[in-house]
Structure formats: structure tokens, C-alpha cells
Amino acid sequence: MIRKFIQQSWFALVAMAIFGMSLAAVDGQLKETIEGNALKKLSDQMRLLLPEAKTFDKKSSRDAQGVEYIYYAGNDESGQVVGYVFEARGSGFADVIVLLVAADASMSTLKGLAILQTNETPGFGDKMKDDAFKGQFLDCPIGEKLTVAKTGDRMVKDREIVAISGATITSEAVVKAVNEAIERMRGIIGK
């Protein structure tokens, strides 16, 4: 019985071991580069959002349910906090949307939005990457919740975000994710 099993499968077992080891070797070689790429992308985006910050401190906080939430505090040369960068995520039309939101130190004005991950429909929801939509979040006051409007002037900096035409679901998803992230961030900073 065992003899038959070995006869049938020895080659598959040996090959599996060899393939497994070669994958482990590749992983060991490339892991650092891959992690470095992700970090570099994150820090490049943060620098664009908060140009006045010189260094970023990674901080984390747990909410009542024990879910860890990571955010970054941007400091200038003297070590003063000039703003916060935090992640916002929500489900869009096609896939999860992951954003990076920047706000000033008092959490009263947004400093902009960067998109980390999106897979929305090309030509429609995909336009959230354009400055015409994304730019509305720059310098926009966040004393109250942001809302979505169908029409309006995108140049006016208010809490009304003008939706992308043909992509209402994406626009609403972005605004909802940003609102939730701001709310959570307020809770953390207020502590």
C-alpha cells in the first residue's frame, strides 16, 4: 500500500519540494524591493499632498472594536505637526477604492486626495483620477460632512463635491469614504 503510494507519487513530491524551494529563494531575493516599492509610492504621494512636511511619523490607533488604524503625522523642521495623512477606503462601482486623504493639523481643511487603488470603468468612474474631480478636495472645509451635488462650480471650494457625470456611484463612494475617514480621524485626534 505505502509502497504503491510512493511509487506513484515520488516524482510529484520531489518536484513540489524543488518548486517550493525555488519560490522561497525568489521571495527572499525580491521581498525587500517589493516592499520598498510600496513604501516609496506611499511616501511620494504623502510628499505631494503635504509639501510643507519634512518628515512623516507612522502612528497607529485602535478603535473600540480593536481594529487597528494607521495614520501619518507630517512634521516640519521644528517638529511641529503640520497635517495628517490617512487612508480612506470604500467599495466603488467595480472594486474597492483606496484613497489617501490629507488634512491640516486642526482637521478643519482638507489638503487633497491621492488615489492608491481603483479599478473603476474607464472613461467614467476612472475620471476620479482627474484633477477636475480630485482637485475639489483640495482646501475644502470639513467642519461638516461633504455632500455630492449633480451640478455646480468645481472651482468653488465648499463642502459640495460635484459628481462625475455618468459615474454617480463612484462619486458618492469617494465622498462617503472620505467622510468616514475624517470622522474616524477626528475621533483619534480628539483623544
Partner: peptide, 11 residues
């Protein structure tokens, strides 16, 4: 392996 190479050198 190809996936890792792409992630590392063409992110």
C-alpha cells in the same frame, strides 16, 4: 516568479 519580478521591477 514572473509576478514577483513585475512587482519588483515594473510596479
Amino acid at each position: 516568479i514572473a509576478d514577483y519580478l513585475l512587482k519588483a521591477y515594473l510596479p
